[in-house]
Design a protein around this nucleic acid. Structure first.
Lengths: 335, 335
DNA sequence: CTGAAAGCGCTTACAG
DNA sequence: CTGAAAGCGCTTACAG
């Protein structure tokens, strides 16, 4: 491999064309006022020399890096990767690159360590699957960088958010389990202090109460906070036969654990998940699950960010009030 | 929201401490030669003022952006998202942020449009799930940016690559299908001109030949290049009963199409996929698939990149020669 | 319509 | 051990 690392800069284009860097820059950025002839000289020289703009230098001077930071736990759960895929493509179409930050699933919050790494990149915007830690809210606002919480309600923080009606989704799960004839229900959440987790739980419990039944409080558990094996043992011993899980990945983990304990899926017990990830990878419908319509959801998230960046006035329509999640029937519940 | 966007720069820290920006920078970058007392003054001022370095400015001057570009078709296939997750976390641990680029699955190659967007970001390295287009190879080399092809063989391009033994994997699939008693086999690839796709095909055909059988050439098809419905119709009409798919997502699509045509999975026909994505999201083992061990694979890819960036001499051990893929039995094949 | 100068926020030589 | 100056590659006012 030869060391031919000729980085071509505006100065080279200026020299080649006999113009000033200033004029070259103006042409490339399509600022008004230059002749057709100049434009051609510049574009020709750029092609011949293989000029590629340095976005970092550009961003430093102009104050806009054309970069958007995307923050999440991890990319393993397809809910994150599928929506990140759609969102980042939408950003790309509008000239923004995406820079990704993971907190390794060690917490459901954006903490100082994370936000510092993000801000160091001077992104034009931040789209986060994680809620900000309580003591980070003011800090984030002071950076002046538009911050969109995706998949979670932003209003408690006075921030922009794009979220779905999680209470409604939890209700769908409850009604379906009851319709199937399961009597002894449980909810397996992720974190006890995350609103989206509690909202699904709330919808679940309310729908059950509306039918005159109730969930035993000891059957409301949070998988990230307890020993998983003992959670399952308790549910099995207590004769739980209908389980609503915070998301599909948790549902699959539960199904595996139940199978190890000799329980037959659909017959001995039913499971409802959330997100419909099997649809994303074209899998057969094994799991009954609540589907928010990730494609539209992701698009709404991207559009919220792009709307804020455009500087236009006015609010965007609320995804939550305009969309209804649906229950998708799989083999993990009866009927 | 108040407009309090005070961006704190080195100049502010210098003013606060009575030192020069120069000295402040030296302390923050832990360059030799400064007193304990100066160090404390600087760190205190940084904490009080909430200083966060501007990596773009830093990169412009130093020539290193501490950014790595990751290139792929899309993030929807869990093979990409799972490995990207592991790789980007490893980069992060070593002080590199990841910036992602997708080509929307419109081609299996890195073309000029894509590489231009990448180079504009001046990444320290490029890790690509896509092979470079033939006429981009020299261009990429001339940028001087370390380029690692992940999951594909780099040697045809004279580039670094981290890949697995795909021929061996294809052989595993063939032997299993034959062991199950399937007689009339087919291969459904992705692109006819991508080496990794052809290698799996090669291993598949060779293993079948070694048993004295053969695959009908019309049963070697490429899903990205033909009408899918007619592919499946042909296979069904020809009585194909054993199908090896380039990856699990394709396998699921095939299973759905076969079910629509009244074929019973495992009994009437068997399917073997590739990647073991069901393991990644903790799903039950539906699909029989070839598992390369994505965790180690991703780690090897990240380490190759980091090794190149470290500037250390010597070659890294080859993943391909050190690792063997394994066949993971699911319900999509007999026995 | 085009150019010379300044400056974005850093780090890198070079002095002292 | 610390500082003044220059410069990374651009874009932004400001002149002409």
């Amino acid at each position: 491999m030869e060391e031919n690392k000729k980085k071509v800069t505006l100065k080279d284009i200026a020299a080649r064309t006999g113009l000033s860097v200033n004029t070259v820059s103006r042409v490339l950025n399509k600022k008004p006022y230059y002749t057709k002839e100049v434009e051609e000289r510049v574009t020709t020289a750029c092609r011949e020399l293989g000029y590629i703009v340095d976005m970092n230098a550009s961003g430093l001077r102009s104050g806009s890096t054309h970069t958007i930071a995307i923050l999440f736990d991890d990319l393993i759960n397809p809910f994150y990767s599928y929506t990140t895929d759609i969102i980042s493509k939408r950003f790309e179409e509008c000239g923004y690159n995406s820079i990704i930050f993971s907190n390794n699933g060690r917490s459901p919050y954006v903490d100082y360590d994370m936000i510092r790494r993000v801000v160091a990149r001077k992104p034009d915007g931040i789209l986060s699957f994680l809620e900000p830690a309580e003591d980070m809210v003011d800090f984030i606002k002071q950076t002046g960088i538009p911050f969109v919480i995706f998949g979670r309600d932003g209003s408690p923080y006075g921030m922009h958010g794009v979220d779905a009606d999680e209470v409604y989704g939890g209700g769908l799960a409850a009604e379906h389990l009851l319709d199937c004839g399961y009597k002894n229900l449980a909810y397996i959440g992720s974190w006890h202090d995350v609103k989206v987790c509690l909202d699904r739980q709330k919808g679940f419990e309310e729908a059950i109460a509306a039918r005159g039944a109730a969930v035993d409080p000891s059957h409301i558990v949070y998988i990230r906070e307890k020993d998983f094996g003992s959670i399952i043992d308790t549910l099995v011993n207590d004769g739980v036969d209908g389980i609503f899980c915070f998301n599909d990945v948790i549902a699959f983990i539960v199904i595996e654990a139940m199978e190890q304990r000799g329980k037959r899926l659909g017959e001995d017990y039913g499971v409802v998940g959330y997100d419909n990830i099997q649809f994303m990878m074209r899998m057969p419908r094994l799991l009954t699950t609540v589907d928010v319509g990730c494609g539209d959801f992701a698009k709404a998230g991207a559009d919220m960010m792009l709307h804020l960046l455009s500087g236009e006035e006015g609010e965007l329509p609320s995804f939550r009030s305009a969309h209804r999640s649906v229950l998708v029937k799989g083999k993990s519940t009866k009927q």
